[in-house]
């Protein structure tokens, strides 16, 4: 491994580990500014994490060891998925043909563990949240698969590093409409997967409408810190995916790549914030409609490619 590659790998890991909690801060700041408020500091989530780690925890009497598995697997799955997405430079740290499937699998494993942990608390309320999460995931995951399939087909590559790497500009030149449809569908899926506003409201504590927040109500202290951190990393993974896709796999060198990635992530967080400020949460019965819509968009993009 050359020094260059080592430096790039180091930078990718450093960005992946340190940067994610900044994104919810940007989203919150954009929302506050649009509403005419000052808003919390950009680094608020870092402070929250530091505070939570020092706290003790309270546990339900029925909760077993699986209860702790949820936050750990959730955060670890998101971090591992982040290693697959090329950050500043073209090949990611981990890359092999077919790692598209590993990406969705890791995210699904995180969700599965979170659902198990929610069921393990023995609270009927958390069971309801878990049911909702799984219901919507069953619609979102096929759509995500088709999106990745579109990218793979357009570039002729089978690994994320290839798909979002040097082959991307040529694909944009040839298949711009299909890739644009795919990017829109991915953005909708990113909002849904990260429990953002048209699907779920991360700030609400109104029980009947919560989805993701319900499942983590019983976690406290370091466990809850891991939950928050894992959610932020997941947002980062989707943001990096979209940023690389939209910027056409820019950046030959490390520095332009890193600057492009950071700019793309900031734009992504800003877009999420604008969406959250401009629309209300959908009613639960309308959520499947949105997800099926995203799936139909990505399928249409795929049909445009293969015909």
């Amino acid at each position: 491994m050359t020094a260059h590659a080592a430096l790039r790998a180091l930078l990718q890991v450093a960005l992946l580990v340190v940067l994610p909690p900044l994104l919810p801060g940007i989203v919150a700041r954009v929302k506050a500014r649009v509403a005419g408020r000052q808003g919390p500091p950009l680094l608020q989530l870092y402070f929250d994490l530091a505070r939570l780690v020092r706290k003790g925890e309270v546990k339900s009497r029925t909760a077993g060891p699986v209860f702790h598995l949820g936050p750990v697997v959730g955060a670890a799955g998101a971090l591992a998925a982040g290693l697959l997405v090329p950050g500043p430079g073209a090949p990611a740290l981990l890359s092999f043909p077919g790692d598209l499937f590993l990406l969705t699998g890791l995210l699904a494993a995180g969700r599965f563990a979170t659902v198990l942990a929610a069921l393990d608390t023995g609270s009927a309320f958390e069971g309801m949240g878990a049911a909702r999460e799984v219901t919507f995931a069953s619609l979102a995951e096929p759509a995500l698969f088709v999106c990745l399939l579109v990218l793979s087909r357009a570039t002729g590559e089978l690994s994320l590093s290839g798909v979002l790497g040097p082959a991307l500009p040529a694909a944009w030149a040839q298949w711009a409409p299909a890739l644009l449809l795919c990017a829109v569908a991915l953005f909708v899926l990113a909002l849904a997967e990260n429990a953002r506003i048209p699907v779920d409201d991360p700030t609400t504590h109104l029980e009947l409408t919560m989805i993701h927040e319900v499942m983590v109500l019983d976690h406290s202290g370091p466990d809850f810190a891991l939950v928050l951190y894992g959610a932020a990393v997941k947002l980062y993974v989707f943001g990096a995916l979209l940023a690389r896709l939209a910027l056409g796999g820019t950046g030959r060198g490390i520095l332009p790549g890193a600057v492009g990635l950071l700019a793309g992530l900031a734009l992504f967080a800003g877009a999420v914030g604008l969406v959250e400020s401009s629309m209300a949460r959908l009613r639960l019965v309308r959520v499947p409609q949105l997800l099926v819509g995203a799936g139909v968009l990505s399928l249409f993009a795929f049909v445009l490619l293969v015909r």
């Binding site: 409609q289 099926v292 799936g295 399928l299 249409f300 049909v303 445009l304 293969v306 015909r307």
Partner: peptide
């Protein structure tokens, strides 16, 4: 319903393009 009609529409569009 809206979801079935969206799915049917998507199916028709796919067949049409294919």
């Amino acid at each position: 319903g809206y979801v079935p009609s969206l799915a049917l529409g998507g199916l028709g569009v796919m067949l049409a393009f294919a």
